[in-house]
Design a protein around this nucleic acid. Structure first.
Lengths: 155, 155
DNA sequence: GCAAATAAGTCAACATGGCTGACGTATTTT
DNA sequence: AAAATACGTCAGCCATGTTGACTTATTTGC
């Protein structure tokens, strides 16, 4: 672990790359969502419900780190419009376990596709080793408390 | 340039890392800005005016890709509160050239510091080679039209 | 068994920061 | 002199974050 030795110019270049890359990363999903009258907040819910079928409302809140009232607004729309379903928990009937409907899965899949393409494209311009390094550095940028929430690395 | 051969699990892991890393990347600046009654939109203006002293309003709009009216709202506050100054262009007096005041520079510096620390920290957990690879992949994620806007690589 | 805690939902109100549309003014270009 | 450009502003809309207060259903703990 070498001591960082980075110029301000290089550091600023990274700051800017993160800004522009993240904007690009969200732009195509945003376009798709707009066709449904949804926004980025809906995307996040679709994403994490899709990735964690049966997730409870409070676990989703913990992942997204937004208030119950903010989540409620978008979740209500997703439920009303049939993209998400909820069932009372078996073990604890106060809980509402969230699942994507097939309609919700189709939309989530389209959103995933857009981001998958962008990631694969960036990867294809570089080698496997470079991409592994990319993931390592990106992982270090994540708050420790959030790291456990990542998809299991089974690859 | 190898054909991508990535599992869905690995791809989703990257999607999640980008989400959590970007949230972390903006969280400390957000806290600082709040002390001034500013938001992320102010940060972006401070950042790009600081990086490009004398930038015109229209160039700033092109970089941020927001509307004149949206920019106006935050720029007005930054001008009124003495973080940014504007002068009529010498060559074209319709233009308003934007500069940080020393007050603005101090705030921009504090915001930069927070992000610099996070980047250096992530870098320090990995090698120089890994970080170079990180930058290469990140660069590829940026829309071609935005790439020229990056800080010159003079390092 | 009952009181307290928990999971979830809702109402109301507010802030930020995107957006569109319509116009005004100063300056430069043609 | 007319048209185009750079900038600014007014008004209003939308999405998505916030706080605070309160309800209902259910589970937990004494």
């Amino acid at each position: 672990m070498p001591t960082p030795e980075m110029s301000e110019a290089e550091t600023r270049r990274v700051i800017e790359m993160l800004f522009f890359a993240y904007r690009e990363f969200t732009s195509e999903p945003d376009e798709i969502l707009e066709e449904y009258g949804f926004g980025r907040a809906h995307h996040r819910v679709l994403y994490f419900v899709g990735r964690t079928p049966g997730i409870t409302v409070s676990d989703l809140l913990a992942t997204l780190k937004i208030t119950k009232q903010s989540l409620s607004r978008v979740l209500r729309q997703l439920l009303d419009e049939g993209f998400v379903e909820q069932y009372a928990g078996k073990r604890d009937r106060r809980q509402r376990l969230l699942y994507l409907t097939s309609k919700g899965e189709r939309l989530e899949q389209a959103l995933y596709e857009a981001q998958r393409r962008q990631i694969w494209s960036a990867r294809s311009e570089n080698g496997k080793a470079d991409f592994e390094a990319f993931k390592k550095v990106l992982f270090q940028m994540i708050h420790e408390d959030d790291r456990h929430q990542l998809e299991e690395k089974n690859d």
